[in-house]
Structures are given as structure tokens and as C-alpha cells.
């Protein structure tokens, strides 16, 4: 009996030493988790998650303060990716934050623009070109579709337009939806 206790204790000590050594010797230097989360977020900077941009949201998730399902532009794909990264359960998108929509771009109606620069100040990625009393225009390739420019505009001249697919950005449809019409196949 005594020998058994001694043997197990000795084994535990040895293994503990090995683990401790491994923890120090093979320590992996990686990104701080907030950076990794920020890499996954779509960078729309829209604030629908109730944080002032993607970086603050990423830091809040890293600190464990909020859920991972608060990003509508990222959609389900982002929530899955975050769940995989943080090894937590997937949760469907929080309806309070918004709904998943197709990618839209802001377009300024030039006939109605009065050149007030309020939208320029609102855009989180500086995608609107213009100056006071001059025409404003959205740089389409930089617009993230965050819709933050819509409220400040006093003449409501900004519309959100769905992006038209082009042949070289077209994606093949998912075959699993087309061919396997076998009841409720996942």
C-alpha cells in the first residue's frame, strides 16, 4: 500500500516537472487574442455591435465581456470563425444588433447634395471625397456599407445600393443545395 502511494506520488512529480518544462520550453508566442479576433471581423466599422468600431469589439470579446454573435455584416461565417478560434459554442446572430444583409454600397445623389461635409465626418474609413460647398462622392471601392453616413445627411441624399455581381467575381452555386434534394439533408 505504501509503495503504491509512493510510486504514484513520484510519477505525479516527474510528470509535473515534464509538463512545467514543456510549458516554458515550447511556449508558443502568438498574436494576442484581440488581434486574432480583429483579423476575423469584417472591418465595416458600423457600430451595430454597439461598440465604436471593430477593434473595440474585438478587445471586448478578448476580455470575455461580450458574446461573439453581435456582428451583422460578418454574419454567420464570422460567428463560426470566432467560435472556432475561441473554442466556444456557435450562437446565432443576435437579432437586436441587426440582420445579415447582402453587401451594399452607399451612393450619393449628386442632384440633392448640398456640400455640408457632415457625411464626410461620419465615415469611419474616410471613403467620402469632398469639401465644404463642393460635391461629395463615395469612393465605391473603399465603402464598407456601414450606413453611418445616412443619419447625418440633412437632405437624405445617400442611398444604399446592392452591388451587382460581375463575371470575374461570380461564385459557383453550392452544389450541396442543388443536387442533393434528399429530404432534410444537412
Amino acid at each position: 500500500m505504501l509503495t503504491a502511494i509512493l510510486a504514484i506520488t513520484l510519477l505525479a512529480l516527474i510528470l509535473g516537472l515534464v509538463l512545467g518544462f514543456a510549458a516554458i520550453r515550447f511556449k508558443v508566442e502568438g498574436d494576442p487574442i484581440a488581434d486574432q479576433i480583429d483579423k476575423i471581423l469584417p472591418q465595416t466599422q458600423c457600430g451595430q455591435c454597439s461598440f465604436a468600431g471593430c477593434r473595440p469589439y474585438a478587445e471586448a470579446i478578448a476580455a470575455g465581456e461580450v458574446d461573439i454573435n453581435r456582428c451583422p455584416p460578418g454574419g454567420e461565417a464570422t460567428i463560426h470563425a470566432l467560435a472556432d478560434l475561441l473554442e466556444v459554442e456557435f450562437k446565432p446572430l443576435d437579432e437586436e444588433c441587426g440582420v445579415e444583409k447582402p453587401k451594399m454600397l452607399a451612393v450619393i445623389d449628386e442632384d440633392r447634395c448640398i456640400g455640408c461635409t457632415l457625411c464626410i465626418q461620419a465615415c469611419p474609413v474616410d471613403a467620402i471625397l469632398g469639401a465644404a460647398k463642393h460635391m461629395h462622392t463615395v469612393i465605391a471601392s473603399e465603402c464598407t456599407g456601414c450606413e453611418l453616413c445616412l443619419p447625418p445627411c440633412p437632405v437624405d441624399c445617400i442611398d444604399m445600393v446592392e452591388t451587382k455581381p460581375k463575371p470575374n467575381t461570380w461564385r459557383w452555386p453550392d452544389p450541396a443545395h442543388i443536387d442533393l434534394k434528399l429530404g432534410d439533408q444537412p
Binding site: Q43, G53, C54, V125, A127
Partner: peptide, 9 residues
């Protein structure tokens, strides 16, 4: 695109 948006922000 997201990387560029992040840098601009």
C-alpha cells in the same frame, strides 16, 4: 478589402 478598411479606419 477588410485589411484596407482597417488601415483606413
Amino acid at each position: 478589402k477588410a485589411d484596407i478598411a482597417r488601415i483606413r479606419h
